[in-house]
């Protein structure tokens, strides 16, 4: 056990060193661009995980925070006439905006559960998109531009890479701390059975609200970074319905309910879809190819590539020995009646 912990932390250090060295080794801006956007999505995915991964409430309204963070930064930079690197001082403002928006949003959405929750988050998302289109201070459908940064392409991408990396690492640390705390345990109790958790003394609404605010803060912060990196935001890019679906897809792709899985999914899917866009032969087909890849993974590794991969390794290592099934995988394993869909699964929660 001790050796395993050592190996794990060793692996993390190697990964971190690799992440830090990445823009030094590959300084080409078109490569570091992949890195920046992948880290932006990794941060957003971890933000999603802190609330939705722990509580089981599938939120499809994270773009509300992402877009609000971007718009908060853009509006403040414009109205306060901020220039160049001083704009980065507005990142805390983006984060606070996310936390503040999470309060009314959560008070409305967290009162309902399951599918109703999903649809309420979608509805609130569309209200926000429309506000971005129609308010007098948001720049309408042409959106907002950011102040100009006089960096050359290579350091530009490299600097943003490190900012995004810092956000991602920060988000992962927060998610890890949440996961191993009493607070995280309460969140997972809500996922397993909210009524029972309430009966056992978990203040469900407060706990969910706190997690939702943390999630909103992280997502809005990275939204601000994303805005300044791209120098612009429009209502349909800041408040993008595909952002929400892509985020959920990344997490289910990597491994739902685990931090590593959420990060891994983002780090694979975002560069993949960017790369598919650049292949001329696939012009017009990239959407189809992306959809097909996602379908294959969802159908053949339904629990995400990380848990399935780990299981595969365990299987190889224990070959010839009596199988020891890790306790966590029993619930998700194929049920005893594989011939029909388990329709009743909906009523249980």
């Amino acid at each position: 056990m001790k050796a395993q912990t050592l190996a794990k932390s060793g692996g993390l250090v190697v990964l971190l060193v690799f992440a830090v060295l990445f823009p030094q080794v590959f300084s080409n801006p078109s490569v570091t661009n992949y890195g920046v956007l992948a880290l932006v999505f990794a941060t957003a995915a971890v933000g999603w995980h802190i609330f939705s991964g722990n509580t089981g409430y599938i939120a499809l309204g994270q773009a509300v925070f992402f877009g609000s963070g971007a718009y908060a930064m853009g509006i403040a930079a414009r109205d306060w006439h901020m220039q160049a690197t001083a704009v980065f001082e507005l990142l805390p403002l983006s984060a606070v905006t996310g936390a503040l928006i999470a309060i009314p949003f959560g008070l409305i959405a967290l009162r309902v559960r399951r599918h109703t929750f999903i649809v309420v988050t979608i509805a609130i998302f569309f209200i926000f998109q429309l506000m971005a289109f129609n308010f007098w201070f948001t720049g309408g459908s042409s959106g907002l531009g950011s102040p100009f940064l006089s960096w050359a392409p290579v350091p530009y991408n490299r600097n943003f890479y490190y900012i995004a990396l810092a956000c991602a690492v920060g988000a992962i640390v927060i998610a890890w701390l949440v996961g191993r705390s009493r607070f995280g345990l309460q969140l997972r109790a809500i996922r397993d059975d909210e009524d029972r958790a309430r009966g056992l003394g978990v203040k469900a609404m407060q706990v969910k609200m706190a997690a939702y605010m943390i999630s909103g803060t992280i997502t809005a912060l990275i939204g601000g970074v994303w805005f300044y990196y791209l120098n612009q935001v429009q209502p349909q890019t800041g408040f993008n319905p595909l952002f929400d679906l892509t985020l959920v897809l990344m997490i289910f792709f990597g491994g739902y309910g685990s931090i590593a899985g959420s990060v891994l999914g983002a780090l694979i899917i975002e560069p993949l879809s960017l790369w598919l866009n650049t292949i001329p032969a696939l012009n017009g087909f990239n959407e189809i190819v992306l959809g097909a890849i996602l379908l294959l993974v969802l159908l053949f590794m339904p629990r995400g590539i990380l848990p399935t991969g780990a299981e595969f390794i365990t299987k190889i290592r224990t070959r010839g020995r009596p199988a020891v099934v890790p306790a966590t995988t029993i619930g998700a394993a194929p049920s005893a009646t594989p011939s029909a869909p388990s329709v009743s699964s909906g009523g249980a929660r």
Binding site: I58, R114, H115, I118, L245, V248, L249, F252, Y256, E287, I288, L290, G291, A292, L294, L295, L298, L299, P302, R303, G331, A332, A333, P334, S335, P338, P341, S342, S345, G346
Partner: peptide
């Protein structure tokens, strides 16, 4: 199959829609 089936169908139908 499995305990997250409803969420999975959401994603699978999304992928089908994309295609």
């Amino acid at each position: 199959r499995g305990s997250e089936r409803t969420s999975m169908t959401l994603l699978v139908t999304y992928a089908v829609g994309l295609i």
